[in-house]
Simulated scan of single mutants.
Amino acid sequence: MEQAINPVDGVGVAFRVIGDGTPLMLVHGTALSSAIWRAFGYVKALRHEYQLILPDMRGHGRSDGPYEPASYAMDLVVGDVLAILDRLGHERAHYLGYSFGGRVGLSVAAAAPDRLRTLTVGGGSSRPQAGSFDRLFFPGCVDVLDRDGMTAFLDTWNAHRSTPLDPATRAAFDANDPRALVAYMRRAEQEPGVPDSVLASITLPTLLFVGSEDRMRLGDTRRMAALIPGAELAVLDGDHATTVMASGDVLSVVGPFLEAH
């Protein structure tokens, strides 16, 4: 993997580049890594049409993982995305982010819209995130991860799920440093979100998709679609975890959107 250095705090962000063509950055969700895009079939489907840029976000995968929550402030995370584009010499790229990756994309679109060709947000939210991990995983999940480690976190989450945790997701979670992930989660829950006025000012071609059973994000996604001028909305089968795994369904709407822009 290659590495880009954030010039503000010196954190190194690992990323992989696959394929040729117009650059498309794919940004994973919480506690995952760039490996999910291969595991779920996105790389195979897209590599012949796009240059895929696959980062491990700070605190995840092979990127640096500081242990201070302040190191995960959203302006620093946005800086990581821009540092990768600078490292590759790209003025602009298409952007697709899921869950946390979607929130990052909204923040990049707000801070540096000239660096994006399009914005695709899956299972995202612009709202403040206090308590979001308890709703996404299980009550008290950050404390369990902090006190008992990743195995206890995954076992407890699995017990709360309606379907068993898939091997690719478990492997991605296991690859993280729990202390870094706790720091990221503590900071993420303090983030104020993206104001409605900022969403209303986004002029990039924007696609929003969400699972029909994603009770956490369905309403938020519909609300963002109403606020972002000209945004397209796709509601797909699935919940927050399974929607991104169904790459065929996702790409059936993302593919035509990218081709149109």
Score class of each variant (00 low, 15 high):
Asn176Thr: 10
Val144Asp: 02
Leu106Cys: 00
Ser126Tyr: 15
Ala83Glu: 10
Gly102Thr: 00
Thr169Ile: 13
Val182Met: 13
Gln129Met: 14
Arg147Met: 07
Leu85Lys: 11
Gly193Leu: 12
Pro128Trp: 05
Phe137Asn: 04
Tyr95Phe: 04
Val182Asn: 10
Arg117Phe: 14
Thr156Asp: 01
Gly193Glu: 08
Gly105Thr: 01
Val121Gln: 02
Gly122His: 03
Arg87Leu: 13
Leu165Asp: 05
Asp148Val: 04
Phe133Asn: 06
Gly101Gln: 02
Thr169His: 12
Asp174Lys: 15
Leu85Asp: 06
Gly105Met: 02
Leu96Cys: 02
Thr151Ser: 08
Asp86Gly: 09
Arg92Lys: 15
Ala83Gln: 13
Phe138Ser: 08
Met185Ala: 14
His94Cys: 01
Arg179Tyr: 13
Glu91Tyr: 04
Glu189Leu: 12
Val144Ser: 06
Asp155His: 01
Leu165Pro: 08
Asp134His: 09
Ser99Gly: 09
Glu191Pro: 05
Met185Ile: 04
Pro139Asp: 05
Ala109Lys: 01
Leu96Asn: 05
Leu165Asn: 10
Ile84Ser: 09
Arg179Pro: 05
Leu88Val: 04
Arg179Met: 13
Ala93Phe: 10
Pro128Val: 04
Arg147Thr: 07
Gln190Ala: 10
Leu145Phe: 11
Leu96Ile: 08
Cys141Ala: 14
Ala168Trp: 04
Ser197His: 12
Thr120Ile: 06
Leu145Ser: 07
Val108Glu: 02
Tyr95Asp: 02
Asp177Val: 11
Arg115Gln: 05
Arg103Val: 03
Met150His: 02
Leu82Glu: 05
Ala109Asn: 05
Gly122Ala: 04
Leu82Trp: 00
Gly140Pro: 06
Gly123Pro: 03
Asp143Met: 05
Val194Ala: 03
Gly105His: 01
Pro195Phe: 05
Pro192Tyr: 12
Thr169Glu: 04
Asp166Thr: 07
Phe100Tyr: 06
Cys141Val: 14
Val182Trp: 07
Pro178Gly: 09
Gln129Arg: 15
Phe173Glu: 02
Gly122Asp: 02
Asp196Cys: 03
Ala159Asp: 13
Val121Ser: 03
Asp148Asn: 02
Asp166Gly: 00
Gln190Thr: 13
Ala180Asn: 11
Ala109Val: 10
Leu154Cys: 07
Asp148Pro: 01
Met150Gly: 01
Met185Ser: 12
Pro164Phe: 04
Ala159Phe: 12
Arg161Gln: 07
Val142Arg: 15
Arg135Lys: 15
Ala93Ile: 00
Gly122Leu: 00
Glu189His: 11
Gly105Ser: 00
Gln190Ile: 04
Asp166Phe: 07
Ser99Gln: 08
Ala188Lys: 01
Leu136Cys: 02
Pro128His: 06
Ala183Thr: 12
Tyr98Asp: 03
Val121Leu: 06
Ala93Lys: 08
Ala130Glu: 13
Ile84Ala: 01
Tyr95Lys: 04
Pro113Ala: 15
Pro164Leu: 03
Gln190Asn: 14
Arg161Gly: 09
Pro113Trp: 05
Ala112Leu: 08
Pro128Gly: 07
Arg170Gly: 10
Val182Glu: 10
Asp146Tyr: 10
Ala111Lys: 07
Val142Lys: 15
Thr120Leu: 11
Arg187Glu: 14
Arg147Pro: 09
Ser162His: 13
Val144Gln: 03
Gln129Trp: 09
His160Phe: 08
Gly124Leu: 00
Pro178Gln: 15
Arg147Lys: 15
Tyr184Asn: 01
Pro178Trp: 14
